[in-house]
Design a protein around this nucleic acid. Structure first.
Lengths: 146, 146
DNA sequence: GTAATACCTAAACCTGACTTTAAGTCAAGG
DNA sequence: CCTTGACTTAAAGTCAGGTTTAGGTATTAC
């Protein structure tokens, strides 16, 4: 069993954040001894899961829901799985969206490289990122081959 | 030249958002006719860039900086290119991070699939540290990296 | 016996990115 | 004439995810 300060230290989080998470219901079974929070293995595992779910773009209120399901036992396995499936799908489309933004960024890097060489944007301005002419596309591809 | 309402329609954005962007200095050269905003090609291109930069995780104040550079002419090409290069690098590491989170989600889906089949987490929980099946091991390793 | 430290609470505050509200201008249509 | 609709503003409100503050308790250290 650990105090809030020890857990904060272990996870590199401010104490205030842990209290905030508790207030938001992220530790449903958290015990106390004369008012003082006692973090056990359950809470440490919960915190690991919280960090993962936050990286996956989940909101606090959805994480709370998940934590509640966890403390309700095996009957909620399907719900929990469905939540992860939904997150997985969402995440995949997020990554796809970011890859399209990344293509745009790569184009802009190439674009300004050309503009610097030309001293103006006149030549390069007429080109649009999505359907680059073949001969420019090669230049573009070569410029960004890793 | 378009009115704010037409541009809102074209980009699928609320009028209030366009006014907010203007107030934040995202359209440095925006013209007005007796108080009314007139959006031209420059502003439409700016909006396309804004959408891209937002997807790339940039804050409004940084986008404003970029737009100011754009209206300062060719001398700012290197700064603009550097900003896109920095964003590109940032974006690539964001995508890598999200892929690790995605692996964790895939692992959790698999985990709960097993738990549903077993009726409990006992087997799957003990399976985690040592003898994880080959097809999921990489996923597990990635999910618990860092 | 008092100072420092770690814990507690409720409530106020903060940031970013909008959104909503209240109040007003202006042109066109019936 | 007057209503409707599209535009304008400043200022207040909203939401998420914390952080800070103010005031209190309990233990240890000198």
């Amino acid at each position: 069993m650990y105090t809030i300060g020890q857990v904060a230290e272990m996870f590199g989080l401010p104490v205030s954040t842990l209290r905030y998470y508790d207030k938001q219901g992220l530790f449903p079974g958290l015990e106390r001894t004369s008012g003082i929070r006692r973090f056990g293995d359950t809470e440490l595992e919960a915190l690991r899961v919280i960090e993962c779910l936050k990286k996956a773009g989940m909101e606090i209120k959805d994480i709370r829901l998940f934590m509640e399901w966890c403390s309700e036992g095996p009957s909620t396995y399907p719900k929990r799985k469905a939540m992860f499936e939904e997150r997985k799908t969402h995440m995949e489309s997020e990554i796809a969206k970011m890859n399209r933004a990344l293509d745009m960024l790569r184009f802009k890097c190439w674009y300004y490289e050309q503009a610097i060489q030309d001293g103006n944007e006149d030549r390069v301005k007429t080109l649009i990122p999505d359907n680059l002419p073949e001969e420019i596309k090669d230049t573009y591809d070569n410029a960004h081959a890793q």
